[in-house]
Amino acid sequence: MQQFEWIQIPYSLLTLFIVLNFGLLLNALMAKIAARVGRRRGIPIYQNYIDLIKNYGLRTSITHGIMFYLGPVFRLAGGVGLLLFVPTLYGSEMFSNLSFAGDLILALYFVFFGALGMALGAGESGHPHAAIGVSRGLSQMTMAELPFALAVFSVALQYDTLTISEIVKAQQGSLFHWTLFTNPLAVAAAMLSFLGSMMRPPFDVVLAPQEIPIGPPTEYHSSYLALMQTNRMIFPIAKIVIIMNLFFGGATNWPIFFAKVFLIYLFAVFVGVVFPRFRVEQSIRWFLIWAVPLGVLAIVLV
């Protein structure tokens, strides 16, 4: 395993910078694609940048207590941490970040970390919609993470390692070395779970503006909201990076990285624009019936 070197810090920050900008553009692009489905033009591609500047530039903000401050910070830390502890590009000295042996377990933990911070912060805001949103969000997310965890264990058993770099290494060589082809059940379970964690329809009852306006972030505004928006740009990408590394052969250079992330994201958007929204108990039942058995099967068959 490689030793820590100081040069890794600027390299990781560079990764973060690239991914943040990519996330800002990609999310706007996805919003545009969803708008085109409704025959609209949608937001301009640079809209997310303007929203961020505006929210950071608001003149007033109020607070509800310490956790209210820390909630968005935890959330952002969850996204950034998830990104920094998995290798972004395989085989690249610059962009393998702070990955180490056993980082898979840490990544699994980081996926949940942000949501917990958010729950505490939103709970402190005292708004009833926030409390409802948090309880819905945590129950749905717990359920959605279960198949993903099963799939990850299945993959870890398959390759006999908990290091993401090793898993990516085992998939190199040819298209048919990808986990997608060597362990399709695990991939299926993980992709269904992926739908649930992307906060897009049909699983966006937690913070859809039309349901409980608008769930956990109801009380968040100006800089707090901007922090959470920043996280919403980074977190999906970081999550997709894990999925890409585990199941789709990773990426060895940036163009392949962008293409793969775009396609995996597009999968969630595609499902989102086609299917209507689930209620929480419906989505939990759906995960229990369709995703969890796949995950269990994947473990058993490995």
Partner: peptide, 22 residues
Amino acid sequence: MTPRFDAYRYGIQWRPTPRQAN
């Protein structure tokens, strides 16, 4: 909000909570 006028093109969005609205 509909395809015919589509105010989102101009950076205009609707927020459900006064905290986030301008």
